[in-house]
Design a protein around this nucleic acid. Structure first.
Lengths: 231, 231
DNA sequence: TCAAAAGTGTTCACTGTACACCCATGC
DNA sequence: GCATGGGTGTACAGTGAACACTTTTGA
């Protein structure tokens, strides 16, 4: 009979968490990037990151890091992939958990962000990123596209109330393609996950367009049988 | 101007790799499990696992562990998720990378497996697993199902040459549902990723059924435009 | 009344599904 | 021949894509 070991005999690793923060601004999908404030590569653009600590789970670590940057809690967060090439960080061996977050720009704390030297970039016009962060963005975007096709996560990027046109623009931004307005509207309404308010938004339209909100209860009652939003 | 640090100031973690090994046997999707040989939970069923070491990347670590168990190299391997709850391992804090592998049963080294006390279980009749390994299996199965819907990974579980019926049975096992034989056959053939050999297998059939193989070249030429196998 | 944008309807092609039918072969 | 299982054909319903059309309302 063997003794219970107090600890396993194995190598140890520092574990980073890097967050891709997505936002949606009118027409564009955007990315929150920070200037790295330590050497090497100090001053270059990087994802918001930090190190996992012993007292927290992975999700809690990601939440903590996001709160530090955005001041937001209760935001949509999904683990994407663990990156662990030997030399991915030139300083020392660090494995990094890639998360992505979806936030509503209206809730974002601009001042807090500026104190971290954070800036929003259009996803299609982002600067070069350090290390393997470019790969991370690609992986997160790929995951977001897949996920948004069968789960109603797009709403995380919109205000509580939004027009059908805004929703359309969002999906066009995510998938980087055009959708037919009429067909998109019909498809969305047919899913039974939108609540039509009686408010109208009069922007550059004379007729004005109705505001919708995500219908959580409706979603709960239809998600069982599964559906496809896009793709 | 700050100095370049020699190392980051952060906590360290032991990193495990746990592998879900899928196999396909006639009608059933199976899972390779081992008897855990250290305390605690010694003797209980567990996924094949090991610890990541400093000299290898994540994928290399997973390959090494699989080679130890199955004697196989060049097998299909995909990272699924990183599990890191604080108390997921009762001995100490260990974060664990979950991988799944698809292997051809005919290539599996039965003796090597037995030396590790490894056994195949039908996925639907598997024993209780230690720690969070049950969650890992669920996550891997979910990923496998999604992935098999739009990438030709099912073939990794079949012999080089197979009948349409075998392919059908495989997909039925993966998705745990029935498919119409005729429609399945037409769909598969229409994708342009199957090569029809001139060999026939005469099993319990009098007419005999043609053997097919996966057409890699055909796949390369059609994968760009994307397609949906199932779902 | 007209222009602009919202929202609806119509048509067509395509895909998935259910199921009937034909085909090759050993007995 | 005939039973058996492999393979193909057909008819129908549902969905997506393209685009025309109607509605609302400020100017």
């Amino acid at each position: 009979m063997t003794k219970v070991p107090f600890t396993y005999n194995a190598d140890s690793f520092k574990v980073a968490i890097d967050c891709i923060v997505f936002g949606f601004d009118k027409q564009e999908l955007k990315l929150l990037l920070v200037h790295r404030n330590i050497e090497p590569a100090k001053g270059q653009w990087s994802l918001m990151g930090g190190f996992l600590s012993q007292e927290e789970s992975l999700n809690d670590g990601a939440k903590r890091i996001l709160f530090q940057l955005t001041g937001l809690e209760d935001i949509y967060l999904e683990q994407v992939y663990l990156f662990g090439d030997i030399n991915r960080d030139p300083v020392e061996r660090v494995i990094s958990i890639c998360y992505y977050a979806l936030i509503k720009l209206e809730d974002y704390d601009e001042e807090l962000g500026q104190s971290h030297d954070a800036h929003w970039f259009p996803i299609k016009a982002r600067p070069e990123l350090i290390f393997d962060h470019e790969q991370m963005v690609d992986a997160a975007l790929y995951r977001l596209r897949r996920r948004a096709g069968y789960q109603p996560i797009g709403f995380e990027l919109l205000p509580e109330k939004f027009t059908m046109k805004q929703l359309l623009s969002l999906y066009e931004a995510i998938y980087d393609r055009d959708f037919d307005e009429g067909n998109f509207s019909k498809k969305m309404l047919s899913l039974g996950i939108l609540f039509k308010t009686d408010e109208k938004l009069r922007g550059n339209s004379k007729k004005g367009s109705f505001l919708y909100s995500f219908d959580q209860a409706g979603y709960e009652s239809v998600k069982e049988k599964g559906f496809r939003i896009i793709g």
